[in-house]
């Protein structure tokens, strides 16, 4: 009996101690993470503005959400965000995979190349966005200098070009695209995408490289004995064994891409030509913290973003997750 009581006492002590360890992080998470997630739902259902306090606001039900889907600027920001994600994520992953595979071949100075390709990722977003904005300048930017004086092509308007990239590519062939849905991201958006691809390659490359180095060399040796070509080795060994890593990168790259904000704000502070670079987070910032300070409406936009990210994570986990090849 005595033994049992002492064990119980010890158990209670361990519980108390554990909660004491959890408390510092727990309190911060409770106040600044859990509470806001709940409060956010409430705010999105009110007409909260700027410096309003709880007693000044009125409950408006789902009006903010209904308004969002009738707001052509919001719809446009949704389309821009999707364009951004669809173009930037695959480009980054493909380029990063190619570089990782080149670095994984037995070459000298691999660590120097690795550092060079990784460097953009550690630099600060705000500063490099300023650099790229200058790079793209219509009148005296380096991008047009390279195009006009080295490649002898015409200059482009880069960040102030509202036409879609697909539209621009097809225009010389005489094909006219009517629908803005098919026009693709505007050249202004593509310019921003190039910047983010440039920055994110390093991050994806490092993870791909770690994944490639985890693949047992004996698979390749066996394939070489069987006379497999380079493409066959990639198709049947590298790609399937790398799929967990690719899948992980795909998810986090997409989630991050949906949240793009800093390069948009710095490179196109007003949302770009014809609002073609205004993404969801940028629009949320515009509505919530500039001009009218419509916090209720901005909270609704944030929740829509949240739901999209949630759905993506779930869909990818259910559909792709099963097909992903995991090593035993």
């Amino acid at each position: 009996m005595n033994h049992l009581a002492s064990r119980k006492k010890k158990h209670l002590k361990e519980n108390l101690e554990a909660f004491a360890y959890l408390a510092p992080a727990g309190i911060i998470l409770l106040v600044f993470w859990f509470l806001p997630v709940v409060l956010s739902v409430y705010v999105s259902l009110t007409n909260w503005k700027g410096a309003d306090t709880l007693d000044m606001v009125r409950f408006v039900g789902l009006r903010n959400y209904l308004w969002a889907f009738r707001d052509e600027y919001f719809i446009k920001s949704l389309l821009n965000t999707f364009n951004y994600v669809i173009v930037s994520v695959p480009t980054t992953l493909v380029v990063a995979l190619i570089i990782a595979m080149l670095l994984n071949a037995k070459i000298k100075c691999a660590h120097i190349f690795r550092t060079v390709y990784f460097l953009p990722f550690v630099t600060t977003w705000v500063a490099i966005s300023i650099v790229w904005k200058y790079f793209y300048h219509r009148e005296f930017g380096l991008a047009n200098h390279l195009l006009m004086n080295y490649l002898h092509l015409g200059g482009l308007n880069w960040l102030s070009e509202p036409r879609g990239i697909v539209e621009m590519l097809l225009a010389p062939l005489g094909i006219d695209i009517g629908s803005p849905l098919l026009a693709g991201p505007s050249l202004a958006m593509v310019s921003i995408i190039l910047t983010t691809v440039w920055r994110d390659i390093g991050f994806c490359m490092i993870i791909f490289l770690a994944g490639l180095q985890n693949i047992d060399r004996s698979y390749y040796e066996a394939a070489e004995i069987d006379g497999a070509s380079w493409l066959q080795k990639f198709r049947h060994i590298t790609f399937p064994l790398l799929s967990p890593v690719t899948f992980f990168l795909l998810i986090i790259s997409m989630i991050n891409a949906f949240k793009v904000f800093v390069p948009i704000l710095i490179m196109t502070p007003t949302g770009g030509p014809d609002n073609t670079t205004s993404t969801m987070v940028f629009y949320l910032y515009e509505k919530g913290f500039r001009g009218l300070w419509l916090l209720g409406y901005a909270a609704a936009i944030a929740y829509i973003l949240f739901v999209i990210i949630m759905l993506l994570t779930i869909i990818q986990n259910v559909i792709l997750g099963r097909r992903v090849h995991y090593e035993a």
Partner: peptide, 17 residues
Amino acid sequence: AMMMVPGQVLLIPNYII
């Protein structure tokens, strides 16, 4: 679960807090 919540959702309520 918190790792999946985008920081933008917390922005407005945290500002109010």
